[in-house]
Structure formats: C-alpha cells, structure tokens
C-alpha cells in the first residue's frame, strides 16, 4: 500500500502545479499518437478550438487506432474521455458493441466521402484510399491489380495486420476484392513481399531507403513529397479491383461529463477550422471539404474509380478468416 501513498503524493504535487489552469472546463479527447505529435493536426486544432470554446482541450494519446480501442475497452465505464478520435471502420464494430458510445446527432450533415455514410455513432473527420506507392524513377510500369503485381518481379513491403492498422486495411482490401480467392492471391504475392513490418513508419522507411519497389500506404502519400519536399517522383498505382478505404472517425462517450462541449467539438470537427488542417498534417482527405478547397498538390493524385469498404460488421466478421488465410499463405 506504500506504493499508493507515494503515487497519491506525486499526483497531488502534480495537480497542485496544474491547478492554476483549471478554472475552465476540460474536454478530454483520446486519440492516436501521431495526431498529437508536433507534426500532426493536434496542436493547431487545440489552438483553434480553444479560441472559441472557453475550455481547455486536452489530448491523450495511445499508440495507434487499435491501441486506442484497447485503451477505451480497458477503461470501460470509468473512462475520463469525453471524445474518442481516431478509430477506423475496421475497429468501430467492436467499439459500438461495447455500448460506451452515444449517437452523434449530426445525421443531416453533408460529407464529402466517395461512399454513403449513415453510422449513427461514429462521425468521420478524414479518409483516404490505401494504395501501393512507388518511385517513378525505379518502376516504369506499375502493376494495375494484385494479380498483375503477383506476376511481376516487383518487391513490396507491407505491414503486419496484427500490429498495424494499414496492415489490417490491406488484409481486408484483398479479402473484400477477392473473397474466396484471397488466400490464393496471398500465395501468389508471397515471393513479392520483401518483409512485413510492425508498423507503417518502418515499412515506409524501408521503401524510401530502396529496400522495396513499392510500399503499402495511401493514395495521398505522394502529396507529402510533392508539397513538403518539392519531389514529384512518388506516385500511387491505381488498381482495377478498386481501393480499400480508411475512414477515420470520432465519437462521443455516453458517460461524458461535458456533453455540450463534446457536441460543440463534433460540430467544430466538421468546420473549416478543423478540416483545413487535415490535408497537410494528417495527409488524408478531409471528411468535409473546406471552402478553401484542397491544397494544390492534391489535384495530381490518382482518383480510384471504385471504392471498397465493407460495413463495420462485415469487416469484423471477415477479419479472423482473412488473417488465418494470410498467415497460412505467407508461412509456407
């Protein structure tokens, strides 16, 4: 028990330090780590919201989307979060099932998504298409489908679906596009895969260092190189099967002690002040296009003709089978 006293003492000291700033109501938003980083949307969004809300917006970060979900499930009813921001549709079925979230009440809002959106709980704030990104100087003829890729000698690096959300997206992409044949596609791809990394950063790093010809990322990735580095050599390969979407969403906790502030945040989330920050910090498409439009470089990006996105329940239902097929095909 000594431990608890020690910690309580420490906590007391820390909260005394922070007491001065505590007269304004606090809105606690749980999100993933890259959102709050100095290079992510967090700092600008915090400043913009605090200008209008007369509140203290606090972000708490937990790894990535899947870590965020585990955290909220762990905390359950006792969570201090008012808003959770950063799950994607591959995770929302499990989140909805927990009963921890309340409807967002923004059913009439017009979104700029390539698909219909009618989820009563989760509200999108940005989205993107998964794609294989390559360097035009190294790959002259990019593949036009998974089957084309499997036939080629191109080397790719992908992420592990067990530890990475883009990895899970790729797993479900192949499953959504090929259904029963998914296992066969993975077997055909096995000799193209250089390696499988724990997360997006490692995979993208390996690709940039020349370890692979292509990397699983987003159709928007080339925009970073173009806008931030003035480098137009990176491109995403359009696939005939269509591209799996990642829609990133936020939701309000049912037991929030700041329901009005939480609603105000969801309103703010779809306003220009929030949405205009997204393209050049999260490098995704804003869920509702701001009046100023998209940054210039975004017009050069490929626009997939077909978007693939199973419902959250379908995604949850197929992922165990898809993982088993993936493991079996790549373990040979």
């Amino acid at each position: 028990m000594t431990r608890h006293f020690l910690l309580a003492g420490l906590a007391f000291g820390l909260s005394a330090l922070g007491a001065a700033a505590q007269d304004r109501p606090v809105l606690t938003v749980y999100t993933y780590d890259s959102f709050v980083s100095d290079w992510g949307p967090g700092p600008q969004i915090e400043a913009a919201f605090e200008e209008t809300c007369n509140c203290d917006l606090r972000f708490e970060a937990a790894g990535d989307g899947a870590a965020l979900l585990s955290r909220i499930l762990l905390e359950g009813e006792g969570s201090e979060a008012d808003i959770v921001l950063g799950l994607d549709t591959n995770l929302t079925a499990q989140a909805a099932q927990s009963g921890l979230f309340a409807p967002h009440g923004h059913d009439d809002v017009a979104l700029d998504l390539p698909i219909e959106w009618n989820d009563p709980i989760f509200l999108p704030y940005d989205w993107g298409w998964f794609a294989f990104v390559f360097d035009r100087n190294r790959v002259a003829q990019p593949p036009v489908s998974f089957e084309d890729l499997a036939r080629s000698d191109l080397k790719i690096v992908i992420q592990d679906p067990r530890s990475s959300t883009p990895g899970l997206g790729l797993l479900l992409w192949v499953k959504a596009a090929y259904g029963e044949r998914a296992g066969e596609i993975w077997q055909a791809l096995a000799d193209n895969i250089v390696t499988v990394t724990p997360g997006w950063s490692e995979a993208y790093g390996l690709f940039l260092e020349g370890e692979a010809d292509m990397v699983l990322s987003y159709t928007t990735s080339p925009a970073y190189h173009l806008i931030a580095e003035g480098d137009d050599s990176k491109a995403a390969a359009p696939f005939e099967e269509g591209h799996y979407m990642q829609v990133e969403v936020a939701a309000r906790l049912a037991r929030t002690d700041q329901p009005e502030l939480a609603d105000a945040f969801l309103d703010f989330m779809l306003s220009d002040a929030f949405q205009s920050v997204i393209p050049e910090t999260n490098w995704m498409y804003p869920a509702r296009r701001p009046e100023s439009g998209l940054p210039e470089g975004f017009s050069t990006l490929i626009q997939p003709a077909r978007s693939l996105l199973p419902s959250p329940d379908e995604a949850a239902a197929i992922r165990d089978e898809a993982l088993a097929e993936w493991q079996a095909a790549l373990s040979r």
């Binding site: 890259s34 980083s37 967090g42 700092p43 972000f59 708490e60 970060a61 790093g205 940039l208 490098w283």
Partner: peptide
C-alpha cells in the same frame, strides 16, 4: 505520452510517422 512529455526516441518515431525520414 501526451504532447508535452515526448522523449527523443518517441520524437524520432513521430518524425518517421509524419513522413519526415
């Protein structure tokens, strides 16, 4: 970690995660 408690290794990973290799 939140915004204000990142250590150097975490900042390194965050830079990678923000394309800044």
């Amino acid at each position: 970690a939140d915004q204000d408690s990142a250590t150097l290794p975490l900042q390194l990973y965050r830079l990678m995660g923000a394309y800044r290799m």
